[in-house]
């Protein structure tokens, strides 16, 4: 006989956080690790470790993208890797004083879209070493790379391209 009417769940000490009783509002925690593949864009991220910026060039129509995309948005054909210049200009910019939770402790930070000679589209990145009032559209900037790679797009960032 295994029936036990005295069966009892073990009590634990963890408890939960209650914010409010009516309506009843509690805290519910959630966390997850993803196994994320850069897949066909992997070369872009590997190249950052070699201090290179890799865009894409359409094999058929010749359109040059400042971002990796293995197929062309203009004609649907396959592209090949295209090494971007490391110097460009600010196409537009902003300074973020707030952000998503993950980046809140990095505020304020500057975002820029960078334009390059001979390239048809732009590249989004951080600009450091300049305050909002110093940044202007057309400002020369150059790419710098982290030494200790994070293996994400923040391994490249831009600084003002001026003499020290």
């Amino acid at each position: 006989m295994t029936l036990d009417p005295d069966a009892k769940l073990p009590e634990t000490e963890e408890g939960t956080v209650v914010y409010n009783t009516d309506p009843l509002i509690i805290r519910s925690h959630y966390e997850i690790d993803y196994i994320h593949s850069y897949a066909q864009d992997s070369e872009f991220f590997r190249a950052l470790g070699k201090k290179k910026l890799m865009g894409s060039k359409c094999k058929k129509c010749g359109y040059v993208y400042a971002t990796p995309r293995s197929h062309c948005m203009m004609c649907g054909s396959e592209t090949e890797w295209y090494e971007l210049p490391l110097k460009g200009r600010v196409h537009t910019f902003t300074t973020c004083y707030f952000s998503g939770e993950e980046f809140l402790n990095e505020t304020p930070f500057n975002l820029v879209l960078v334009e390059f000679d001979g390239v048809n589209s732009l590249f989004m990145s951080r600009l450091i070493g300049a305050d909002t009032k110093d940044i202007y559209i057309g400002m020369p900037v150059r790419a710098k790379f982290r030494r200790n790679l994070k293996m994400n797009v923040t391994d490249v960032y831009f600084v003002p391209d001026v003499e020290k």
Partner: peptide
């Protein structure tokens, strides 16, 4: 702040999200 982060997951998470994760920043540009 977490809400901003969730909304920013509606930007390219390989190229745009890790730079700032903030839609207001994109619109500001």
């Amino acid at each position: 702040w977490k809400g901003n982060e969730f909304i920013a997951l509606a930007s390219d998470t390989n190229f745009d999200y890790p730079i700032g994760g903030f839609y207001t920043g994109y619109y500001a540009m």
